[in-house]
Every structure is written in C-alpha cells, then in structure tokens.
Nucleic acid binder design. Structure first.
Length: 172
DNA sequence: AGTGCGATTGACT
DNA sequence: GTCAATCGCACTA
C-alpha cells in the first residue's frame, strides 16, 4: 500500500528476489555501509537505493536486527490508484506500470526518503495482508546480476502477466 | 582524490 | 537485437 497526497495506491506483489545472508550478489555482503544500513534493520523495513543512477529499487529487510539480508520487490499487479500510477509513470499501458523493479518504484513514487521505513505499520508505504490466492509460484535465477547468479532465488506468480523477465526464465 | 561499475530502463537499428 | 543514460558508492592509492 502506498499513501500519496492524491490518494491510495496498491497492488499485488507478483515477483520477488531474495538476497540472503552470505550472498555475494547482495548489497550487505561486504558489511554495513551508509547506503545499505536498512538491510540490517529488523525484518520488514524498507531498503531503497538508486540503481544505475536511474531507477530506485524497493527491498524489504528479511532477518533479525544486525543481520543484512533482504527481498527485492520486482513487480506489482496494480489494484488501486491506477490513474495516479499512470501519471507517475507517464504511460497508459496497464501491464507496464509496475513490471520491473525500477518501474514499480516509479509508479509508487518511491525514493530514498522512504529508506528505513517500517513496512509492517500503516504509513506512507506498508505491506497489507493480501486477500487473493496467489496461484502457482515459479522459481528461477535472478535477473541482472553476475555474482552468485546460478542460485534459484527469484520467485514469481506463474500465470501473472505482470511479471518481468524473459520467457525463458518464466517457463522453466 | 580518482575511478569503475551496477539487483535497469527506454530508445533505436 | 544493441546501446547509452546517469550517479552514488565502494574500492584502490
């Protein structure tokens, strides 16, 4: 759920990637830094960073305090506030509003100001319960990384058109 | 203090 | 399919 001055935005998370403890691809791999400190917060806190100087990425910390790990939120099936998302993205096509981590952050207007936020409490951004059956979950290699690339730590809703990535990864 | 490189996207051949 | 954009940060010296 995302609360903006113009209204409420929400959607169903349909694709994630895990960056686990000891993972060479994870930002926490080399210890805590000013950028990644939120990964070391109690599970359920937001870690937001800028990738390629272009796109913000939303992660959720996933371990106990002091342990650096998180889950990248890669795609959303839009539900509420779709007109606002379209305006944030500058496009009309529903499927492309939040298909990909950078697009998702853009649609929800997420930036570093939300870094460190507790997503388990209602606020400007939080994780709601989810009221729909998720369907079958697929598993694959993660997208766009080089280190530890073979690990099957990407998870997605198999039959959702709102999932990013090449078909080769989505139909194993 | 300088440098190289991404957990990507959008435009273009 | 290829490729440039763009910048914060981690790493080297």
């Amino acid at each position: 759920m995302r609360e903006l001055p113009e209204g409420i935005l929400s959607g169903r998370i349909v694709e994630t990637e895990a960056y686990v403890v000891g993972d060479a691809a994870g930002h926490a791999y080399r210890g805590m830094t000013p950028r990644n400190r939120a990964l070391f917060l109690e599970r359920g806190h937001a870690y937001v960073y800028l990738a390629y100087g272009i796109s913000y990425m939303l992660n959720v910390s996933s371990e106990a305090p002091g342990i650096g790990a998180g889950v990248l939120i890669r795609a959303l099936e839009p539900r509420e506030g779709i007109p606002i998302m379209k305006r944030n993205r500058g496009i009309e096509h529903l499927r492309d509003l939040a298909r990909g981590p950078g697009r998702l952050a853009s649609a929800l207007r997420i930036d570093r100001r939300l870094d460190g936020l507790d997503l388990c409490r209602e606020g400007p951004l939080w994780l709601g319960r989810g009221d729909a059956e998720s369907g079958a979950i697929g598993q694959s290699m993660r997208i766009g990384i080089t280190r530890d690339a073979d690990r099957l730590l990407r998870f997605y809703v198999r039959d959702s058109p709102f999932v990013s990535g090449p078909r080769s990864l989505n139909t194993p």
